[in-house]
């Protein structure tokens, strides 16, 4: 296993102050704090070359876990091992084998072209100049950003900056990529380019990727396996398709009608999501789908009929909100 989290916990102590003047004075005299359990007993492991989605609502503990795995945050309890190292020791070999890309933080020098920042990266990671040149060319071509290498970073769009952040983060060819919201705030085209890039990079270099994103399209396009956190705890670790299919117990049936029908005609056909003169949308339990479809065809003037599962985004969104997954699957 190239990444292992074993019972990781992180507790932060934060100030606990009520609003108002009296509370402010009380807090000044006697400071009160409370413990926030950001991550609770999280265990999972990644094999070399895997691309895994890391899901959870805001505050679920994803970023804190990523920071523990990259050595920025020391676990309160538990153990992490990444490429054979304890992350918080931050040994050179470890730091040279990983990268963390944060969509809301930048490492490029703001006022200079990215090429200047790449020079610092090359020196810090002890890379050969010719190798760096070759990798910059290769990565910038993959991201379609070759014409932006000499433009000051502050003059670039958000998407262009993120692409160059990715180039900088991958110059040293890390074995493990921790990507924290790499498509945050980007337009659809830029999101698609970055998704394709991550997929190609993984295929070419066999790098392991742990990806967090609030855009479900990132997750569905790139990962087969997801790890889901809810309120700091792990609630699911397994395939994305199993998660969705095990959770979704209904199907949507969309019916085109030849003539309008009365509400009474729909009794026993499932929940009615929409009732129009020419169209009906019904929600039917998956287990009752076959007999219900037979009844619909027998009782209603059907012109056309389609059966669909709810969109993955809606399903995952519901799971993240409630922390509810029908079963926990170990990968």
């Amino acid at each position: 296993m190239i990444v292992e989290a074993d019972g990781l916990c992180k507790t932060f102590r934060v100030a606990d102050k009520a609003p108002g003047f009296a509370a402010t004075v009380r807090h000044l005299v006697r400071r009160r704090t409370k413990d926030v359990h950001a991550v609770r007993d999280v265990s999972f492991a990644l094999e070399a070359g895997e691309v895994v989605g890391f899901l959870g609502e805001n505050g679920a503990g994803k970023t804190t876990t990523l920071k523990m795995l990259t050595g920025l945050v020391k676990p309160s309890a538990g153990r992490a091992t990444v490429v054979g190292h304890t992350p918080f020791a931050r040994r050179r070999d470890f730091l040279s084998a990983i990268t963390l890309v944060m969509g809301n933080k930048q490492q490029l020098v703001w006022d200079l072209p990215a090429g200047d920042s790449f020079r610092i990266h090359a020196a810090v990671y002890r890379l050969d100049d010719r190798d760096v040149q070759r990798r910059v060319t290769e990565l910038s071509e993959m991201l379609d950003i070759t014409d932006k290498l000499t433009t000051p970073v502050r003059k670039l769009s958000l998407g262009e900056r993120m692409k160059l952040e990715l180039v900088a983060s991958l110059l040293h060819q890390p074995k493990v990529l921790f990507l924290d919201e790499p498509t945050l705030g980007l337009d659809v085209n830029a999101q698609q380019t970055i998704r394709a890039f991550i997929r190609d990079y993984n295929a070419q270099h066999g790098a392991t990727v742990l990806l967090t994103s609030h855009y479900m399209a990132d997750i569905t396009a790139l990962t087969e396996r997801v790890v889901v956190l809810h309120q700091g705890g792990l609630v699911y670790d397994g395939s994305l398709s199993s998660l969705v299919s095990s959770f979704v117990t209904t199907r949507q049936v969309v019916i085109k009608l030849r003539t309008p029908v009365d509400g009474a005609d729909l009794a026993g056909l499932g929940a009615v999501d929409f009732h129009g003169p020419a169209e009906l949308k019904l929600r039917v339990e998956r287990d009752a789908l076959q007999p219900t479809l037979a009844q619909i065809l027998e009782r209603l003037p059907v012109v056309d009929l389609t059966v669909t599962a709810p969109p993955v985004e809606d399903t995952i969104g519901h799971i993240l909100k409630t922390g509810q997954s029908s079963k926990r699957v170990d990968a």
């Binding site: 920071k67 990259t70 050595g71 920025l72 931050r90 050179r92 730091l95 040279s96 990983i98 990268t99 963390l100 944060m102 933080k105 930048q106 490492q107 990266h121 810090v124 990671y125």
Partner: peptide
Amino acid sequence: QGRLSPRLLQPADPVW
């Protein structure tokens, strides 16, 4: 601003 974090991830002391 949290700018120290990316520097701590590089194998060089941020004092550079």
